[in-house]
């Protein structure tokens, strides 16, 4: 009898000690794989939005005409985050501008770095350290012809069993000279989260 209790005790201890414990494991994942950790705006959404917007812009007939003989100069204004989440929209515009630049169809000016450029030109012009014949000149920069801007909006709904989130990303390209919107497109994402019965 005592043996039975002892064996049960040992078996239980062994099971608890070696069995199903939660061990934290660190792994490298695939940065481009579809990620469904939770319902919030995630890396897959960012990549999907950036890829679809770039593709749409690059195949549009208007852009075909604009880029026929020249590489238009763009500047990215910003993406307004109208969702209820904190989303780094600069990261989306970074992805879009990088893809557009790498396509070889467009050129960009970066308005976020104006202060740094001014500081460097000031140094070259007025510090006395740089050979004046080799110093970069003020007033030689090229102005942007087009402005890229947009919005990210969301509609969130949930009940006790399910949550649903809908994102709409709008991107527009404006001709700075005429003020005309030359191109616009939007892309949508729907994500739902619900309880699923998992069987084996």
């Amino acid at each position: 009898m005592k043996n039975l209790i002892l064996i049960t005790g040992i078996a239980l201890t062994l099971t608890l000690a070696t069995g199903c414990t939660n061990k934290s494991v660190v792994r490298y994942g695939d940065a481009t794989a579809v990620e469904t950790t939770d319902i919030n705006f995630g890396s897959t959404d960012l990549q999907k939005v950036a890829a679809e917007m770039t593709d749409s812009l690059l195949v549009s007939p208007v852009v075909g005409t604009l880029t026929a003989n020249t590489r238009p100069i763009l500047f990215v204004e910003s993406i307004k985050n109208k969702t209820s989440e904190h989303i780094d929209t600069e990261s989306i515009t970074d992805s879009i501008s990088t893809k557009l630049l790498r396509s070889g169809k467009f050129r960009f000016v970066d308005m976020d770095r104006v202060t740094a450029v001014r500081k460097q030109l000031d140094y070259q012009q007025s510090s006395g350290m740089v050979d004046p014949s080799k110093a970069m000149q003020f007033g030689k920069q090229v102005g942007a012809q087009y402005m890229l801007y947009g919005n990210l909006a969301s509609i969130v709904k949930s009940n006790k069993d399910q949550s649903d989130v809908y994102y709409k990303f709008t991107l527009r390209l404006m001709d700075l000279q005429s003020g005309l919107v030359e191109w616009a497109d939007e892309t949508e994402i729907r994500k739902t989260k619900g309880k699923e019965f998992i069987s084996w």
């Binding site: 481009t32 893809k99 790498r102």
Partner: peptide, 27 residues
Amino acid sequence: EAGKSPWKPLNLHGMQTAIVPGLAPTP
């Protein structure tokens, strides 16, 4: 651009045929 082409999600309903577009990143 190795490793930069993202995996994109697609929900394909029962017996559905979906046409998925792809565009080369450069000429």
